[in-house]
Amino acid sequence: MSIADKVEVRLRVNGEDTAIMVLPYKTLLEVLREDLGLTGTKHGCELGECSTCGVLVDGKPFLSCLAMPLDLEGREVTTIEGMARGREPHPLQVAFAELGAAQCGYCTPAMLLTAKALLDREPRPSREMIKQALSGVLCRCTGYLKIFEAVELAASRGSDG
C-alpha cells in the first residue's frame, strides 16, 4: 500500500466535520487515534471482544475497532473527547470521578459513553438495566459496582442537567 491507495473519508466526529485521506482498510479506531489524535478511545483486543474501543455512532454504542470509516459517512461519531460540554464535564464523568468508578481508567471512556447512550434513552434506569447496558464493556479493576453506583448517581442528578 502506498500514499496513492489512500482515499478521502468524511467523518463527523464530536460535532465537527472532517475530511481526511486514509488507507481504506483502517478501522475507525485507527483513524480516531492515529489520524485525528483522539487517543481517548482505547483498545483491548481489536477484535470486538472487550468493547474498550467503544464509541457512539448516532448515539448508539459501537465498536470502533470493527467499524469501517468509509461506511460512516453522514453519521455522527461521539468519542470521550466529545462528552463534556465545553469545560463542563458530563454528569456521568463527574459521578465516575467522585465515586472512584475509574480505577486504571482504561475501560472508562467506553464505559462512560455506553452509560451515556443508556441515560439518553432511559434517564432513570434500574440496576438491572444498567448491568445489561454495560455488559459489553469489560473492566478488570472495579468489580463494576462503583460503575453502577456512578451511573445511578448521575441519573439521580439528571444527566442532561
Binding site: 468493547s51 455512532v57 448508539k60 454504542p61 455488559s135 459489553g136
Partner: peptide, 9 residues
C-alpha cells in the same frame, strides 16, 4: 448475541 455494541452494529 454477544454484547450491546455488537447488537447495535
Amino acid at each position: 448475541v454477544s454484547t450491546p455494541q455488537v447488537r447495535c452494529m
